[in-house]
């Protein structure tokens, strides 16, 4: 960041965040012997009623938990994985009773759909993709985008599920000739898709036609940026990035999230906000999630921190609970709750 940009970065004073803005709603433990890797909230239909359920993923098992009246959770389905470990849950929006998972060792090798057969409620898994998968994201309108391969041999595919999660349709997007790191949908523009690449470009596609519309080179200060969320407003694109590989700087400490504004017509961009840790907090970005204008990150210190991107500062800090570091953080898609997980399978649900 240049000196001019320093002036618009809002570093909060120590007392400007409120730890009380996160209230514990419920918690449960997934008694798996393997390491907990992801958590997500999904709508699931049982006996004709749609319920907000929690999906937990350990390396060798994925479980679906349904809510009971007493703020407790009951495990209702499990899918087992004996050959390739689970890396992440990939929620697909607007389709009920289906969740996707990415499997692999460090890099994604398979994407599978997890579902239940309607007659006997038995758990099933279907292999959707296999290969050298670099990025995957579930989109609105029952779509799943993935990129397979690198550089010139890359294929970018959009798979559309039927309403019942069954038969599907596939479309190719024009590859950008540079390896894709992450995808992000543009909120409110269901035909626009963004991707970040290994050479610090943000690429923009038209999902309806498969066209590659623009490449936007962003600041080289941070490599391997992850795009979490994008919004289009008044002819500009607002993009929320995180920088897991960023080095600490004296001026800002470790940057956690950055809000960029892009003019898609001219491919010019500008940093408008850099979210850093409040005074007294240490650590680097481990993983994070953004919902609307609220961003949450797990730090290497084992703490979770939350930023309001409209206010421009950190609003809550959640230190490790019961002496155990946090390792997962996700916003719920079914309500305004924050899901926080620990490696041993403990899941805590907070109201923000």
């Amino acid at each position: 960041y240049s000196t001019e940009q320093n002036e618009i970065v809002d570093l909060p004073a120590c007392d400007s965040w409120n730890p009380g803005s996160l209230q514990l709603v419920s918690k449960f433990k997934n008694p798996s012997s393997s390491c907990s890797v992801d958590v997500s909230a999904v709508w699931w239909e049982r006996a004709g009623a749609k319920e907000p359920c929690i999906i937990t993923a350990c390396e060798d098992v994925v479980s679906l938990w349904k809510p009971l009246d007493t703020l407790q959770w009951e495990k209702v389905h499990t899918w087992h994985f004996t050959e390739v470990p689970v890396l992440q849950i990939v929620p697909v929006h607007d389709v009920y009773n289906l969740i996707c998972v990415a499997l692999g060792n460090l890099e994604i090798r398979e994407i599978r759909a997890l579902l239940c057969s309607s007659g006997d409620e038995n758990e099933k898994q279907v292999l959707l993709k296999s290969g050298n998968i670099k990025a995957v994201l579930g989109l609105t309108k029952r779509r799943l985008v993935s990129s397979i391969g690198t550089f010139c041999s890359q294929q970018v595919q959009v798979l559309t599920f039927a309403e019942d999660g069954g038969s599907k349709d596939e479309q190719l997007l024009m590859p950008p000739d540079e390896t894709i790191l992450t995808f992000a949908e543009v909120q409110g523009m269901q035909d626009a898709l963004l991707g970040t690449t290994t050479v610090n470009n943000i690429v923009i596609w038209n999902l309806r036609t498969g066209q590659l519309l623009k490449k936007v080179h962003i600041d080289d200060s941070y490599q391997a940026s992850i795009c979490h969320r994008a919004y289009s407003e008044m002819g500009l694109l607002f993009v929320v990035l995180s920088h897991p590989c960023a080095k600490e700087s004296q001026a800002f400490g470790s940057p956690m999230f950055q809000l960029l504004v892009i003019n898609p017509k001219t491919a010019q961009s500008l940093g408008v906000l850099l979210c850093c840790l409040p005074e007294g907090q240490a650590g680097r970005f481990l993983e994070g999630d953004v919902k609307d204008h609220i961003a949450a990150a797990v730090l290497t210190s084992g703490t979770i921190a939350v930023w309001d991107l409209l206010l421009g500062h950190c609003t809550a800090v959640l230190p490790p609970v019961s002496g155990q570091n946090w390792s997962l953080v996700k916003w719920s898609d079914t309500d305004s709750h924050l899901l926080a997980g620990q490696k041993d399978g403990n899941i805590f649900i907070y109201r923000y």
Binding site: N206, T266, L270
Partner: peptide, 23 residues
């Protein structure tokens, strides 16, 4: 820095880029 540095802005950027980009 201001949005003036970003050049001319178009509210219909998505449609315009789609009509300009190769099919």
């Amino acid at each position: 820095c201001s949005t003036a540095d970003l050049g001319p802005i178009s509210l219909n950027w998505f449609e315009e880029l789609s009509s300009e980009a190769p099919p």
